[in-house]
Write a protein that binds this DNA or RNA. Structure first.
Length: 98
DNA sequence: TACTTGACATTTT
DNA sequence: AAAAATGCCAAGT
């Protein structure tokens, strides 16, 4: 059941489903596809290239520690609600797996 | 089998 | 508000 390859596909599909201008969290994805948030993050680091990885943020709205600057540009272009703290306004921008 | 590591989360200092 | 400590899950060594 759920081979590693399938698990990766599930995660990537959820990310692709995130609407423009919204974001989701690793925990939400983990809750939807199973496993733990760390596992989701690991999958993203290995196979998150071709998907809008900037729409996936940490639980408090902070950006991934590896590509914040890139992600911030995307947010400015897409009109994602940002906070003065430099993080995403997770309260208004959060999108959960439907 | 045991220890270490990692795009995390939550609670406590 | 920011940093450290603890818990969690799976994979690699």
């Amino acid at each position: 059941m759920t081979d590693p390859e399938e698990y990766v596909e599930l995660v990537l599909q959820v990310v692709e489903r995130v609407p423009r201008g919204r974001v989701t969290t690793y925990g939400a994805i983990a809750d939807a596809v199973g496993g733990g948030p760390r596992q989701v993050g690991s999958v993203m680091s290995r196979h998150g290239g071709p998907v809008p990885w900037w729409r996936v943020v940490r639980a408090d709205g902070s950006l991934p520690p590896s590509h914040e600057d890139e992600a911030r540009q995307r947010y400015l272009e897409e009109g994602t609600p940002l906070r003065r703290s430099g993080s995403v306004d997770i309260v208004n921008a959060f999108w959960g797996p439907q």
